[in-house]
Design a protein around this nucleic acid. Structure first.
Lengths: 195, 195
DNA sequence: GTCTATAGGCCGATAGAC
DNA sequence: GTCTATCGGCCTATAGAC
């Protein structure tokens, strides 16, 4: 399979995605031009259209694969102690959010730039993720290990609280990730009435 | 004081601000053109520049006045019971956020579009607001009414949790504001170890 | 204060060569 | 797969008339 001079498809594809993710997260989808993405990748703007039909599809691709990665990364044991499962979820969600902070930020900020159809797909994946936590809380209540007034609201409140770490966390700051996980697990345990 | 034909300064100024706030919140700062704002107001694009030197200043003005309104709206009684003060804060923050959801969303999403200097000013106002909650938690711990591992993180966690209401609240939904306040107060009370 | 007109520039996307 | 060149369009901001 002869290759055209200058072709580096295996590298260019992933590079477009990672540079676009960074730029979209830091400047906003609408504020980033295809030319800027191309410059960051090291190609000319026209070359991007060999990988994506348009700018909107590139955004959707980033959001969709992020949500899929998130769902794939979570491993639960439905038979374990609900409080242990919740603790693992707390540490997992914080860790994953910090490891993918650009994608997390994008997933909250740029939903409005999706077509209605694409928006529904991403919202569906997010809903699936929320249901994972909801299931843990449900089992915790059934087992009498948690005391929760409204389970759906508790789910949304916990996810917002945990994701908020990305708003203030700075590498090399006062607290390391283990310690942050400890503190947030204490907050979450109290919030679900597990003391 | 004669007025030029067609001049409606008292109306146009506030209208520019409110239409810009709506458009920026729903589409993103970079995605909204001055022409779109002008069309929503009912003037031509050039007329906007009698009220703002440029688009960036318009954004800063919206964020600055929002933070100032927030700080002005909160009334605390440092001598009251810390748990009562925290409950008032929880209900106040949720209510204010829902009443000003466009401005709240803007304040989180469009900080990146401010100049460094303007960013520092907004960050300073936000810090002052965080310190109001921090003070309540400090007094609660001193009085032995709260059990908090890390006060700064608890502050950030609570604000993120409460602000998150704007992500899912819909007018006329399953729960009214009073009930939402009840549920979140329960979560917050547990999180600060007040049970 | 508001209008019309416009300068100067960047945009997304495509065509065609290699 | 990547490049160069380009179309048609929209952008911010300003100038000058009323």
């Amino acid at each position: 399979m002869a290759r055209t001079q200058g072709s580096r498809a295996e590298i260019t594809g992933p590079l477009i995605r990672s540079e676009a993710r960074k730029l979209f997260a830091h400047k906003g989808f609408a504020a980033v031009s295809m030319r800027q993405i191309a410059a960051a990748v090291g190609v000319q703007a026209g070359a991007l259209y060999a990988y994506t039909p348009d700018k909107q599809a590139l955004l959707y691709d980033l959001l969709e694969s992020h949500m899929q990665d998130l769902l794939d990364a979570w491993q639960d044991d439905p038979h374990a102690d609900p409080l242990d499962r919740l603790e693992r979820f707390v540490r997992f969600h914080i860790g994953f959010s910090l490891d993918h902070s650009d994608a997390v930020f994008l997933s909250y900020m740029e939903l409005r730039n999706l077509t209605p159809q694409n928006y529904r797909k991403i919202a569906g994946l997010r809903r699936r993720y929320e249901d994972l936590l909801d299931g843990i809380l449900r089992d915790g209540m059934s087992a009498g290990r948690m005391n929760i007034d409204d389970r759906k609201l508790a789910t949304m409140a916990l996810i917002a609280m945990l994701t908020g770490v990305t708003n203030w966390y700075r590498e090399g700051g006062r607290l390391d990730r283990q310690r942050i996980g400890d503190v947030y697990w204490g907050l979450a345990r109290g919030a679900v009435g597990a003391d």
